[in-house]
Structures are given as C-alpha cells and as structure tokens.
C-alpha cells in the first residue's frame, strides 16, 4: 500500500550513453521522455530546466532531446512544474503533454484532471506523467546554505548533488567531494513536505528513483495503462537495460521501509498539527 498500485517493478537504466553521462541515476526520465517525444506519444515535456542561477531549476517545456538533456539530474530544490501545465497547451500549443514531478506534483496533476477548476481543456492532454521518489524538498536558499555554508563549496562549481547512504553529497568540477550527514539538512527542509504521505509517486504513470537499486541504476514502478503502454514500447525499442529488482534489504525492502518511515513520520506531523495551539489546531489538507 505504501508503494501504491503498480503493474511491474524493475531495475533499469538507459542504454543511451549521452543520457547516462549527466543523469542522476539510470536516466529513466530523460530516456522515457526522449522516446515518447520521438514517437509522437508526447509533443513536449515539462521538466526542471536550467535557469540563470546555478542549481536553481526553471520549469521549461522541452520539445527537443537537447532541451531534455539540459534538464538531466536532480536539483534538490523547488521546480514548480505544474505552473506550466495550462500554458503548455496554450502558447506552446501542446496536445499531448509529458510532465515530471515529485509525488506532490503528481497529486496536483491528478487533481487538475479530476477537478479542473482552473485548468480548462487540460485534463485529457496529460499524456505521460513521470513521478520521482521524494523524501522531502528544499527551498533554493536552503540548498545554498547546505552547499556553500555546510559543504563549503561554491554553487557554480558543483557538478552533481546527491542524497544517499545517510548523507548529502556535493561533487565539484575539480573532483572534490563534500559530504554532510543528512541529519544536518533536516531543519532546512520545506515545511510543506512534512504533511506529504507519498514517497514513490503513487499517482504517476511511471515512477522512478535511486533507492532499491545499485549505483547507476534506477528503480521503476509502472503503474497505469498509459505508463505500461509507453514503458513496454520503449523497452521493446531497446531504450532500457533492465534486471529484476532485488527483494532483499537493499532492494524493494528498502524502498518499502523508507516509504513507511516517511508516511509514519508525516502522519505524526499531521496529528500534531491538530493540537498545535491551545484548544486550536492547524488545517489538515486531507479532511
């Protein structure tokens, strides 16, 4: 249940060397969008592209593989991809939209489809929603504080950020590796993440993340008919190298454990909010 509904779960990585070079893990999102774009399954994809500040993502509508490649890798701060969902159908003229996002953004996509209150003509134009695993996200300024103050490296010299093995990592262009315990990062987290009850993007068509597979690979959940269709076609076309996901402590069991930990912790936060004041509480978004 904590992992949501899914048809298949595999370990996978892209077979495209160019995609893998700048990918966070197995290059799943970039590869799947690149395939869908080429095959006309989508006309473009809303992704976290580069902006004029280092490591600050800017949501963009990517309509070429080059634009997808420029958006590879995890930025660990907020990219409001939903903000382009309607615009993608307007000034970009997309009829079939791809969108990548965190679990909360996948929730936003499905709410927009079922309750399109301000989303005229959008619901049937979402052609492929790819969700990523997410424990929590950070405001840009938090990432700045972690990288520059705690890791003591400049934002612009960082080539990759990563969270894994209980640490936050910053790799720089000249080969230095800075790491800090994940515990240090907790107070910098975005508060809105602490009421989130989804770790593995339960509502995506396909969701993916690093946890559960060896370095350079990604765990992939194929969830919906749409997701299954695209995934099987892309696999048949040779886009992915796949292997069975391990069931043990470093595999699916670990994904389940982290999902359970997140949900349990955040459910406690929600309960705490109900009695936050004296005879008064904070709002529960799920009631």
């Amino acid at each position: 249940m904590v992992l949501g509904n899914y048809k298949t779960c595999v370990a996978a990585r892209s077979t495209d060397k160019e995609i893998l070079k700048g990918a966070q893990d197995g290059g799943i999102v970039t590869q799947l969008f690149a395939y869908a774009l080429e095959e006309g399954i989508i006309d473009g994809a809303i992704v976290a592209g580069p902006s004029d500040e280092p490591w600050k993502p800017e949501p963009i509508v990517a309509t070429t593989k080059a634009e997808l490649l420029a958006a590879r890798g995890t930025k660990y701060n907020l990219s409001p991809n939903m903000s382009l969902l309607k615009e993608a159908t307007r000034s970009y003229g997309l009829d079939r939209i791809g969108i990548v996002g965190t679990p909360c953004q996948m929730q936003a996509v499905r709410k927009a489809q079922l309750y399109p209150i301000g989303m005229r003509d959008v619901p049937d134009k979402v052609a492929l929603a790819i969700g990523i695993f997410c424990m929590e996200n950070f405001p840009y300024q938090s990432i700045e504080a972690l990288v520059e103050d705690h890791c003591n490296v400049k934002m612009e010299s960082v080539t990759k950020m990563d969270i894994g093995k209980g640490k936050f990592w910053a790799y720089t262009e000249r080969g230095a590796v800075a790491q800090i315990p994940l515990k240090v990062t907790h107070k910098y987290e975005q508060p809105g993440c602490h009421v989130c009850l989804d770790y593995v993007s339960n509502l995506a068509d396909v969701s993916t993340g690093s946890v559960g597979t060896p370095d350079g690979w990604s765990t992939v959940f194929v969830r919906t008919k749409i997701g299954d269709d695209v995934w099987s076609k892309a696999s048949a076309a040779g886009c992915f190298e796949t292997k069975e996901i391990e069931s043990g402590k470093t595999g699916l069991e670990l994904v389940t454990k982290l999902a359970t930990d997140k949900i349990t912790k955040n459910q406690k936060t929600l309960e705490g909010r109900a009695t936050f004041g004296v005879g008064k509480g904070l709002r529960n978004p799920y009631l």
Binding site: M82, S83, L84, K86, T102, I117, N137, G192
Partner: peptide, 15 residues
Amino acid sequence: QGLCMGCGSCAAACP
C-alpha cells in the same frame, strides 16, 4: 499554515 510545497498549480489556474 505550512502546507505549500511549491507545485505551481495556483499559477496555472489563475485566469
């Protein structure tokens, strides 16, 4: 209320 997670739905919805 400490609930915003910055998805951007509001910006898309605003007419």
